[in-house]
Design a protein around this nucleic acid. Structure first.
Length: 730
DNA sequence: ACTTAACGGGAATAA
DNA sequence: CCCGTTAAGT
């Protein structure tokens, strides 16, 4: 039934029928299955507004969980303009991690957590785990701290406590011991890792009737975005909170589930249906983002996955520019193609900010950056080295963390001799030994050591000076703002002189310190605890501002939830997408495919897919040949700008980059006839005519070095792969 | 005690 | 290539 516009509630006017149904449904468990670009953020926002204005829900009773802090901010802003700032501010709105951090700050004491706990990031976790491996006398080659952390993270995501870690093998036994020790060490340092935030919250809600009642009363209405990427701990939190009122409103797209490696389990959708049998489901199938061509391409890719609900996405943006599929010689040429094409788009009226370049791994950004610099195109890079993981930032935060809690051994060990102040390895072991004896922190150990005396003048003076400095910071943190405290620690440690060593890198590091200082200045009243919590929970995408007009470089994972008029997806090669680490598992390959789907569906108007013919792998001096991604085979020619070169399809046999290949076995020498001789003239399908500079066997392959004309220059090609043939001699 | 060079091993996505 | 570790030099 078509209703007259004026009969429709103002909140609903901008919505289509499906969206309207989802927004106005009575409270209760609701699952909105939303395709990409189908306006799920809009639905969530309008649903909240609808509940507040039409269903007598108080903002205080609403908990909304988003995937990024940025999404939370945006939703908050939209609701603010729709309803007025006050009601928007009363809601609890944030990511799972941020929300749990807040709850634990208030209630954690029931679990024995200090209200001033700090969040330990990946770096800190690794520091702690290295200590654990050393303490337990484990071989760190056999039990890599990194791997142990992964195992522990998986356990935490499934709410498995150290004491309950399942042991089936000796290896499990070691992991279990490491887990116990790791958790003890974290707590001794008053730290929680990212997974703890979720696990401890879930555990508290499961075990503490008083707390759970309090939060069920408070959060009578819960809304969740990106539900397909929740893990078990997150699901338990939701289930516990919603157990009484059953007002749980989740938005999901199983085709965009790309975080299983972080414990996300899209079967939570199945659990939801089981745990809330009265669940109502809504579909959002109209896409408002992309053109039909882009949508068709993306659909063709995702349709190949089994175990999914088929969807009928459609858009009114019929037709559109065909998808451009491009092969480049290597990663440099690929990057140059992206830059050249960007320049062309800019000439045709696009802004830099319209354009995003996406890739599977952060390492791929390098070639792109270099090319953008050469072409003088402003860009910004998301991810890579997180701002808050940079050495200089971690150092300064280390001092600040010591002021917050001098018993934080991780921070203590990090900064005790930074900048170098004559406290070397010897002295540090003495401090550690004293701490051990006293059963206290390193800081306590240091104080004990100073009191006992007898270290020798130099060392004693250095230690006392450091101790006095830290003690002073602890006092000053009460009276100074965070900005003031940072100024003070930087001044006291003479950090500027240390970091500005005259090199360009030093300058850039100092600029980062100043940038940190500027960030703090924007929140003059923030408490030290809140500041340190925020810092730990910022994601790089959170910092993405629309005001900067630059091309965005980011991983496919970071791109989730974003959209751009023009998108380049680069490195679409076997080994990269799907990634070599996923290639042997069908389940993981399916997730890689979803990753491509997520990338493609970010594009509004123009989509470029690129792959390189050969690619350099880190330390290898020569690049390795690569094959186009198997996923590209599933693109119908109809959506492509030019039909594909059928000769260069991915082979179905699994391909491994050389650095993953099995060690070369001694083989009987195989005589291979060289096809090309130095001086030979050749014709190449892309590069035209050239002259062979040399030809040699590489393994069993003939590698030909050819000089091409037209400014193309020297290329190294595999005779078996290259679309190239010898020309008759004159 | 600190700095520097040489070496070896590992290599994905991220709150 | 980048990291951390180690050995030798300041």
């Amino acid at each position: 039934m078509v209703s007259m516009k004026q009969d429709i509630h103002p909140l609903l006017r901008v919505l289509n029928e499906q969206q309207r149904a989802a927004v106005t449904t009575p409270t209760g468990p609701v699952l909105v299955l939303a395709g990409p670009g189908s306006g799920k953020t809009r639905v969530l926002t309008h649903r909240i507004a609808w509940m507040l204005s039409e269903m007598h829900v108080s903002p205080w009773q609403v908990l909304a969980v988003t995937f990024t802090n940025k999404a939370a901010r945006e939703m908050n802003h939209r609701l603010g303009t729709m309803l007025g700032d006050t009601s928007a501010r009363a809601m609890m709105l944030g990511t799972f991690h941020a929300t749990c951090a807040r709850i634990l700050r208030r209630e954690g004491e029931t679990l024995g957590l200090s209200p001033n706990y700090l969040i330990f990031d990946t770096d800190d976790q690794l520091t702690v785990m290295k200590q654990v491996v050393a303490d337990l006398g484990l071989d760190d080659k056999k039990y890599r701290p990194h791997n142990l952390l992964n195992a522990i993270s998986s356990a935490k995501n499934e709410l498995i406590l150290p004491a309950d870690y399942p042991v089936r093998t000796y290896h499990d036994e070691i992991v279990a011991r490491a887990y116990v020790r790791y958790q003890q060490t974290l707590r001794k340092n008053d730290g929680l890792d990212f997974d703890d935030l979720l696990m401890e919250t879930a555990r508290m809600l499961q075990t503490n009737p008083t707390v759970v009642r309090q939060y069920r009363d408070r959060f009578q209405h819960i809304l969740v975005d990106e539900f397909q990427d929740t893990n078990i701990a997150q699901y338990v939190i939701l289930k516990q909170l919603a157990a009484e009122h059953h007002s749980l409103y989740v938005v999901a797209d199983e085709d965009q589930s790309i975080y299983s490696w972080r414990g996300a389990d899209y079967r939570n959708i199945v659990r939801l249906r089981e745990d809330f049998p009265e669940l109502l489901e809504f579909l959002l199938e109209e896409n408002y983002r992309s053109t039909q061509v882009i949508l068709d391409g993306a659909q063709a890719i995702i349709a190949q996955n089994s175990d999914r609900t088929p969807k009928h996405l459609f858009t009114e943006k019929k037709g559109g520019q065909p998808i451009s599929l491009n092969e480049a010689y290597d990663e440099q040429e690929e990057a140059d193609f992206v830059a050249d094409e960007t320049t062309r788009l800019l000439r045709n009226g696009h802004k830099h900010g319209d354009i995003a370049v996406m890739y599977r791994t952060n390492a791929q950004s390098r070639a792109l950056e270099e090319s953008f610099i050469r072409h003088n195109i402003p860009y910004r890079l998301i991810g890579a080295t997180r701002f808050y993981s940079r050495k200089e930032i971690k150092d300064v935060l280390g001092y600040v963390r010591l002021a917050h809690n001098p018993d934080d051994d991780v921070s203590f060990a990090r900064v005790i001799n930074v900048p170098p102040r004559g406290i070397g390895a010897r002295t540090i072991s003495a401090v550690a030994a004293a701490a051990q004896r006293a059963g206290g922190s390193l800081y306590a150990g240091m104080l004990a050591l100073i009191q006992a005396g007898g270290q020798g003048g130099r060392t004693e003076r250095a230690l006392s000076a450091f101790a006095a400095m830290v003690a002073q910071w602890v006092v000053l943190r009460q009276e100074l703002s965070v900005a003031g405290l940072i100024d003070r620690v930087v001044a006291d440690t003479d950090y500027e002189t240390f970091i500005r060593d005259g090199s360009d890198q030093g300058e850039s590091r100092w600029e980062n310190v100043l940038a940190l200082r500027a960030v703090v200045a924007e929140a003059p009243d923030i408490s030290l605890t809140d500041f340190l919590t925020d810092v730990a929970l910022v994601a790089d995408v959170d910092e993405l501002s629309e005001e900067v007009d630059a091309v965005t470089l980011l991983t496919l994972h970071s791109a989730k939830g974003l959209e751009y008029p023009v998108v380049f997806l680069t490195g679409l090669e076997e080994g990269l997408l799907p990634h070599s680490r996923s290639i042997e598992s069908a389940v993981e390959v399916a997730e890689e495919r979803r990753l491509l789907y997520v990338g493609m569906t970010r594009a509004e108007r123009r989509l470029y897919l690129t792959y390189a013919f050969r690619r350099s792998w880190r330390g290898f001096r020569d690049s390795e040949p690569s094959a186009p991604s198997r996923f590209l085979e599933d693109l119908p020619d109809a959506v492509l700008k030019q039909p594909r070169d059928r000769g260069r399809q991915a082979t179905k046999t699994s391909w491994t980059p050389s650095w993953r290949a099995a060690p070369k076995r001694a083989e009987a020498p195989v005589r291979v006839e060289l096809q090309y001789r130095t001086g030979q003239r050749v014709a190449h399908a892309f590069y035209g005519e050239g002259m062979v500079l040399g030809s040699e066997l590489e393994g069993r392959q003939e590698m030909v070095t050819v000089l091409f004309g037209n400014g193309i220059g020297v290329k190294k090609l595999l005779s078996s792969m290259a679309p190239m043939e010898p020309l008759p001699q004159h």
